[in-house]
């Protein structure tokens, strides 16, 4: 009886210890690889940081620089977080090792990137959908209708935030011709001109 009573907890204790080690061993690299510094350790990511710095999403409302993970990795830790980490992580490693990271097809990348930007990350900063991006002025009537449709109050659009709000932080060459990307494009072209000098 006593032997059996001791044996069972010992088994469970070992299992628990293994679980803790596995979770800690997984959580630490997961957290460490969710930093801008880690992203920038691959040289092909530089251009995206350069674009981000000239974008409307360069700094938040406290003038703190916005990191890659704030948009590209789900804020809440859970199944979605793990999925994004695993899928995007393996994709990035694969392309870095076996792809051609210097000449990426950004047109093909856009839908993939947008697919894995979750709405909760946008809503973390932009809570009031009746106000503009800074939360100051009211948005246009059309914009209000769109957000009502998004909130399922009036209509039911299934597009997420990034389904309508394109080029918030990155602007590939082929998108720069749109007149509503004018300002962003101008800032980017100034940047490249500076670098050439």
């Amino acid at each position: 009886m006593a032997q059996g009573g001791r044996k069972l907890p010992k088994k469970w204790l070992i299992l628990l210890a293994v679980l803790v080690v596995v979770i800690a061993g997984a959580a630490i690299p997961l957290a460490q690889s969710s930093t801008t510094e880690f992203c920038m350790s691959c040289h092909e990511m530089r251009r995206y940081q350069d674009e981000l710095k000239k974008s409307p999403h360069a700094v938040d409302k406290d003038k703190q620089p916005i990191g890659c993970q704030q948009c590209h990795v789900p804020n809440s830790i859970g199944l979605r977080y793990l999925t994004v980490k695993v899928v995007l992580g393996f994709k990035d490693i694969w392309v870095h090792q076996f792809g051609d990271p210097e000449n990426l097809d950004r047109r093909a990348m856009q839908p993939v990137a947008r697919r894995f930007v979750v709405d909760e990350n946008c809503l973390a900063c932009h809570q009031d959908l009746t106000k503009d991006a800074r939360g100051e002025k009211k948005i246009s009537p059309i914009g209000e209708l769109c957000h009502q449709a998004y909130l399922q109050e009036n209509g039911n659009t299934k597009r997420g935030c990034v389904g309508c709000h394109f080029n918030m932080a990155h602007l590939p060459e082929f998108d720069r011709r749109y007149f509503f990307n004018q300002e962003f494009a101008k800032r980017l072209s100034l940047q490249t001109a500076e670098r050439r000098r």
Binding site: C146, A149, N156, C164
Partner: peptide, 8 residues
């Protein structure tokens, strides 16, 4: 209603 911006 579904996609007001696109429609307009």
């Amino acid at each position: 209603k579904a996609t007001p911006k696109v429609a307009q």
